[in-house]
Design a protein around this nucleic acid. Structure first.
Lengths: 183, 183
DNA sequence: GAAGATACGGAACGCACGCCCCGGTTAGCA
DNA sequence: TGCTAACCGGGGCGTGCGTTCCGTATCTTC
């Protein structure tokens, strides 16, 4: 598979499509028509399909990057001095993202199934370390698993979608955070 | 508007459609094709449209009934001796429903907008009483509003959707319940 | 600067689904 | 039992969207 370099205009268009898709998906979720993404990128639909074999592949390219970014952040916090604070900090980060990322629920729902599995596993691993360390430090109750935590976060993100109150995420997170403390 | 009684077969078919729609919506959410509901009811699509002007109206007929049922239950618990226990009991009830009611999120999202508004207001009122009494009794923290609570419940329901673990709802609810206690 | 490869654009296709229509059937009533 | 009005069924229409095709434009190489 000799990877020949893309033509200059092709690379530029690919970048434009990715940027348009990123904001379009973030704003309206997976439901946004592909033609609209193409138009926003100043490109025809055919061009999109030259770079991504299917709409789902395009979505996956965006969503996987998002999830991997979160995973990287989780890993970065894993070696912090205060495991409890590191864990809470990560939750805050999620709550922030939740406000204006309408594609996050679709990603969790498995809209871009293939490549998403690996990214999900990657984040589960990183989150598992964060969680385990926080539990060992006595900052988080021991009867929650990584799966429970992911489900909680997914619920939190969805609960916040479409609500005009910009402070709702933090209030809901406060409840979840207190609920996660050891009894 | 002289309400003439429906013909016997018409009434029977209407009932069949409602039953088929109830289970179909519960199983797969609003996204289920109307033709499929008609087929499950042993009826043509035209017959469905004789009884309900639109798919959304059919969904609303189901979803509003569900929400009103929850509202009625909330009202019934409102006069219980132990406000804290009444409140917790209602949360448990929601968690139960969450397991196999895929239409509940769509209902909250406003899929059957018109009639749903009234039902939502009805439930907000009933839930408000439950919450206020539990807060006065010192069983629930005071910095959560009815809106916060509804958002939390919506998130909880979605978080549980599609998960094979039948015990997940109770575990997540345990976290939320503890988080709702006064500090 | 010309030739060849590569990429673009948008019109067109197929499909799924909500919704309507009309010929045929059935229930209710005398 | 026969008549009328109500109702049924499913084929069909319009729309929106994912996807493909191909004539044209653009870039790269010699």
């Amino acid at each position: 598979m000799a990877e020949r370099p893309l033509r200059a205009d092709a690379r530029r268009n690919r970048e434009r499509v990715l940027a348009a898709a990123r904001s379009a998906f973030a704003e309206r979720g997976y439901a946004v028509p592909l033609d609209e993404i193409a138009a926003a990128a100043g490109v025809g639909p055919g061009t999109v399909y030259r770079h991504f074999p299917t709409k789902e592949a395009l979505f996956a390219a965006i969503a996987v990057a998002n999830v991997e970014e979160l995973a990287a952040e989780a890993r970065a916090r894993a070696s912090a001095a205060d495991p409890g604070a590191a864990f809470i900090g990560f939750l805050d980060r999620i709550a922030e993202q939740a406000i204006a990322k309408r594609d996050l629920p679709d990603a969790f729902a498995g809209a871009g199934a293939d490549a998403m599995v690996a990214a999900r596993a990657e984040m589960d691993d990183a989150l598992g370390v964060l969680l385990a360390r926080a539990q060992e430090a006595g900052a988080v109750r021991r009867d929650v698993s990584v799966g429970d935590l992911v489900a909680l976060l997914k619920g939190l993100v969805v609960a916040v979608q479409g609500d005009p109150d910009p402070d709702l995420p933090h209030r809901l997170l406060a409840v979840v955070r207190d609920g996660l403390q050891p009894k």
